Measured scan of single mutants.
Amino acid sequence: TKIIYHMDEEETPYLVKLPVAPERVTLADFKNVLSNRPVHAYKFFFKSMDQDFGVVKEEIFDDNAKLPCFNGRVVSWL
């Protein structure tokens, strides 16, 4: 699974690849690859589809939650 993530106000996003199927990747999986960053200091928002509003940034805080996936990749903002 490819996860593209944006940090603070930085213009260029980062990319990490996880050896987990897109439909199975969790917030804990993502946090594990960010071990060099203080993950407890961040809120995690993900590109998600809402039936009422369309594409939104959804906050996910449960480490066991599966991450929303679009075209085989996850897009996140920290």
Rank of each mutant, 00 (worst) to 15 (best):
V33R: 08
A41R: 11
W77A: 05
P68V: 02
F30E: 04
E11N: 13
T12W: 08
K57M: 14
P68K: 01
V74E: 07
K57S: 13
A65L: 01
N71F: 04
P19F: 04
S48W: 04
M7Y: 06
E9A: 10
T12H: 14
N64A: 04
P68G: 01
R73F: 14
S48H: 11
Y42H: 03
D52M: 06
K47W: 09
F30I: 03
L18G: 01
I3S: 01
P22K: 06
L15N: 07
V20I: 14
P68S: 03
T26P: 01
K2V: 12
P38T: 12
V74M: 00
H40E: 12
F46A: 04
T12S: 12
L15P: 00
Y42G: 02
Y5M: 05
T26C: 05
L67V: 03
W77T: 03
I3D: 07
R73V: 11
L67R: 03
F45K: 02
F53M: 13
F61T: 15
N36T: 13
K66I: 11
D52T: 13
R73K: 15
E11V: 11
V56R: 15
H6P: 05
L67G: 03
V16H: 00
V33Q: 08
M49Q: 13
F61R: 13
S76W: 01
V56W: 10
L15A: 12
E9S: 11
F61C: 12
N71W: 02
E10T: 06
N32V: 08
R73Q: 15
D29W: 07
H40M: 10
F45R: 04
F45L: 09
F30S: 04
I60V: 11
Y5R: 02
L15T: 15
Y14F: 14
A65M: 07
P38G: 15
K43Y: 04
K66M: 10
K66E: 06
V20H: 03
V16G: 01
Q51H: 12
P22A: 05
T12P: 06
P22I: 04
G54E: 14
L27F: 02
C69W: 04
H40S: 10
E58S: 12
A28L: 10
I3H: 03
C69Q: 09
S76D: 03
K66C: 09
